[in-house]
Design a protein around this nucleic acid. Structure first.
Length: 341
DNA sequence: AGTCGTCTGTCGGACGCAGT
DNA sequence: ACTGCGTCCGACAGACGACT
């Protein structure tokens, strides 16, 4: 189904073709006219904020569920998260469809992860001078990094990724949810940015582990405050809404969770081993250099003392010859005087 | 089995720029 | 003005794993 279906779906949403609406909300959706063209910074920030709230909302519900509360969540059909995000964006003036939001989010995360992986590799390799934010455009491109990821966006995405980590923790005590994540991350990193991967555990995508999420990022202009109007994180259900043509997938993991955790820790260990090896290598190199310098110094001193010694001996020899000459001269003059007498 | 979220490779339109 | 080229970015398609 994919492309055709998706286009068809969008068309229905735009034009309002289709079955009779079951809900008023649905009707409202069909009347929406989605904006096209490039995403402005404001729209992007609205989307990021919406996603952040989405994760908060999920974490909250999962907490409720884990407490065994019979709350809304347990019985209601699976929510349409992207529909919720679309509505949230819509309320804040970002008139985009759920598909557009999803695609934009995908692209944002793609860029964000590249930058994060790069920054992580820098911090692991002790290479502070080459931060992504200090790179020239062409340098970024050479390194297969996004050419113009804005600091504000990066900052906001970092926050959202942290929300997600929290949501996933809430889901399974941090153990069950994003099981697939590390694997997917592996896949991703193995691809475009594999070469930069020293990262530690979970350097992967939505990183279940917050510490990695916010590695000491190189300084970039302080993120402008994002005056996102706080949307009430109401739990609005869009139980019914035009599905996407594309497959969508849920988020958590369970059975392979422990395996992926092991994998994460193994990767982490490898990363630290590599970092230690690099550091040790550098130290050895430095020690060797110092040794070479001291040897050179000793050699120079030896040369100096050698020449000094030889010059001293020459001086001694000359003075001895002088003494000898003067004594011969004295002896000769004595003889001459005796003969004259 | 069906659905969904994420990741990844790819395509195509819009745009800027240099050369003619 | 036109053309060719390169780049950017939204969008599409499919794979994958997890959930229901």
């Amino acid at each position: 189904m994919l492309k055709k279906d998706r286009i068809e779906m969008e068309k229905n949403v735009l034009v309002g073709v289709g079955e009779e609406e079951e809900e008023e909300e649905e009707h409202e959706d069909r009347c929406r006219e989605y904006r096209k063209g490039n995403w402005s910074l404001t729209e992007t920030m609205v989307l990021i904020e919406a996603k952040k709230m989405d994760y908060e909302r999920r974490a909250q519900r999962l907490k409720e569920l884990s407490r065994g509360s019979s709350g809304i969540g347990s019985s209601r059909p699976q929510e349409m998260r992207w529909k919720w995000v679309e509505d949230c964006c819509w309320r804040h003036g970002c008139c985009r469809s759920q598909n557009q939001c999803n695609d934009r989010w995908d692209n944002l995360m793609r860029d964000y992860k590249k930058v994060r992986a790069y920054e992580l590799s820098l911090s692991a390799g002790g290479n502070p001078g080459l931060s992504y934010w200090k790179l020239e455009r062409h340098e970024r491109k050479e390194k297969n990094l996004p050419s113009n990821l804005l600091p504000e966006i990066h900052e906001a995405l970092t926050e959202v990724v942290q929300r997600r980590a929290m949501a996933e923790k809430a889901r399974g005590g941090g153990a069950c949810a994003a099981a697939a994540r590390p694997v997917q991350e592996e896949r991703q990193l193995g691809g475009a940015s594999a070469s930069m991967q020293h990262s530690s555990p979970g350097a992967g995508s939505q990183a279940p582990e917050p510490p990695l999420i916010a590695p000491p990022l190189p300084p970039y202009p302080p993120p402008h405050s994002r005056p996102m109007a706080t949307v009430d994180s109401e739990d609005s259900q869009h139980s019914v809404s035009p599905e996407r043509k594309r497959k969508r997938g849920g988020g958590g993991g369970s059975s392979s969770r422990s395996n992926t955790m092991e994998l994460s820790s193994a990767i982490s260990k490898c990363a630290s081993i590599i970092a230690e090896a690099l550091q040790a290598g550098e130290q050895k190199e430095e020690t060797r250099h110092k040794d070479l310098v001291s040897i050179e110094e000793r050699k120079a001193k030896l040369e100096e003392s050698k020449s000094e010694t030889s010059s001293q001996s020459m001086d001694g020899l000359a003075s001895a010859i002088n003494k000898l000459a003067s004594s011969i001269l004295g002896l000769a003059t004595d003889r001459m005087q005796k003969l004259q007498k």
